[in-house]
């Protein structure tokens, strides 16, 4: 396997003595869509939060090519090229859609041609264009998720971390979100995606990791997973 873009090795982390990640490793090759699936509360979000620096690791290394992310602060990690589209969206509720998007291009590298990117995002996600002057807290759930993704795309990232994009959305909204993600994959973006409801993501993924109780229990290509009935039964509800 060629040198991966993002590599986690033997990473442990937790909250207040409660260990959530127990020495797990993971690699995301350039241009691939890697997905982590597994039951809720078993560390999927914590893993992404470790990569973006919101949770400090207690052991192990996280590297983006040669940059040791585990030593950096969240804003430095973003500057290194990690874009995290978090669970719960973390929008800026009292700001307009446009200002939320512009925040995505906060860092100097992206800010220079922020206006141009804004127009590109509006083409890519037209629902945001219609609502550009609306205050974020007044959007529907699906629109909020779109905004969170759009905001992530505003920055000049080398890898996108997407946390549970379908969580709490109506089927139609999920279709739209996944159409957008498929578009990103086609355009060659590297994506690390976490999802509890794995059925949708398996069609898109190049590589699947199964995370259970803070550890990786299986990894491989989606088509190999399809032949592992016992795993499907345990983790995907059959």
């Amino acid at each position: 396997m060629p040198d991966p873009l993002l590599a986690l090795e033997d990473v442990s982390a937790g909250y207040q003595g409660n260990q959530v990640l127990k020495g797990l490793s993971l690699a995301v090759p350039e241009g691939a869509l890697v997905t982590i699936i597994g039951p809720n509360g078993h560390g999927k979000s914590t893993l992404l939060r470790c990569v973006s620096g919101l949770v400090r690791t207690t052991r192990g290394t996280i590297r983006l090519r040669d940059t040791p992310l585990h030593r950096l602060k969240p804003n430095e990690i973003v500057a290194a090229g990690v874009v995290h589209i978090p669970q719960g969206d973390m929008l800026f509720p009292d700001m307009t859609v446009r200002d939320n998007l512009l925040m995505g291009a906060y860092l100097p590298a992206a800010f220079a041609n922020g206006r141009q990117r804004l127009e590109e995002i509006f083409v890519l996600l037209p629902v945001l264009a219609e609502r550009r002057r609306q205050i974020a807290s007044t959007l529907s759930g699906g629109e909020r998720r779109m905004l969170a993704i759009g905001r992530g795309l505003m920055s000049v990232g080398r890898i996108l971390l997407i946390d549970e994009p379908s969580l709490g959305l109506a089927p139609i909204a999920i279709d739209q979100i996944y159409a957008a993600i498929a578009g990103l994959k086609r355009s060659g973006r590297t994506i690390l995606l976490v999802e509890e409801n794995a059925t949708r993501v398996l069609d898109l993924a190049d590589m699947v990791y199964l995370l259970d109780n803070g550890q990786m229990v299986w990894q491989g290509a989606p088509r190999d997973l399809a032949s592992r009935q016992e795993l499907l039964a345990t983790y995907l509800g059959g």
Partner: peptide, 24 residues
């Protein structure tokens, strides 16, 4: 301004702002 937006963003969602690369 860029600075002003970052100030408002930090006030409204500190972690969210960090994820945009804002140094709080």
């Amino acid at each position: 301004t860029r600075m002003g937006r970052a100030i408002r963003a930090t006030a409204q969602n500190r972690e969210g702002a960090e994820l945009m690369g804002v140094s709080v």
